[in-house]
Simulated scan of single mutants.
Amino acid sequence: MDIWIITLYGFTVGMIGTGLGGLASLFVKSNNKILSFLLGLTGGFMMFIVTFHLLPESFLLGGIYITLLGILLGILLVIIAEHKLDKTVHNPLSKSSLLLGISIAVHNFPEGLALGSSFLTMSNLGPTLSLAMLLHNIPEGLSMSIPLRINKLSPLKILFYSTLAGIPTGIGTFLGFYMGTFSHIIIALCLAFAGGTMLYIICDEIIPNAKNLHKGRSSSIGVVLGFVVGIILYFK
């Protein structure tokens, strides 16, 4: 496929996903139980993508050491971004929204790398990963936008900021496809990098935050359902 078509694909997936989340925030009530379920659904679905798609493809193309290196680099990137943010923002609501926004943008870039690289593999990983990214960006855009609503930001600004967070997906998609044409090792590293980034965010942010929002079973049901949805899409 043409690199510009793949790049447009990446921009569309990233910006529509988070943008739809921002749009939904204008209509959905700030119900902790609903947000808890959506975040849990995100965590379960992305856990499936990491364990059944990203890392196996990386192992196959680059071997265990390249995969482990990519995972480590992905985790370090998110930790550094979070550490820098903790020192600069003090308003709890603004900090929560900004952290989610930066986290989404930061991990949308390696996700874009993985998306661009995935279209070079022999499997149907590209379309599957695109759907996964689109779906999981919606609740992330929603979660990012809820604190902005509480701070009484205008609807247009909420839509603008939530859509903006999806731009790195398109940039990453271009670079992932472009660099991946040179070496399978680069493809493997991109896939593992995105896998490590998502794995850390799932474990450190999505699932814990889902449980903190609502102490009941909604987040756990969401996690399981998200994983099951991944299985259904994989074997369909």
Rank of each mutant, 00 (worst) to 15 (best):
N91W: 06
N91E: 14
F27A: 11
I221S: 02
S30P: 06
G141F: 02
G176A: 02
L77K: 08
P110D: 04
L135C: 12
S117L: 08
S36F: 00
L142E: 05
S162Y: 06
G195W: 04
A165R: 03
D2C: 03
G226V: 06
G126Q: 12
T88V: 14
P127L: 11
S183T: 06
P155V: 00
M133T: 07
R149Q: 02
S103P: 00
G10N: 08
I158L: 02
I171L: 15
Y234C: 03
V106P: 01
M15A: 13
V223Y: 03
S162I: 11
G196I: 15
K152E: 04
Y161N: 02
L68S: 14
T173H: 11
K215P: 00
T12S: 14
P208E: 01
L115Y: 12
D2M: 05
E140A: 10
L148T: 03
P92M: 11
L26K: 01
G44Y: 07
F235W: 09
H83N: 15
T67I: 04
G141W: 02
S103A: 15
H83M: 12
K157F: 07
M198S: 08
P155W: 06
G112N: 04
F235D: 07
L76K: 10
Y161A: 01
R217P: 08
I138Q: 05
F182I: 15
K152A: 01
I71L: 14
I206E: 05
G166C: 12
S117V: 07
P155I: 00
S103M: 08
L164F: 15
V28K: 00
P208F: 06
I102D: 03
L159Q: 09
I6L: 15
G63K: 03
L20A: 13
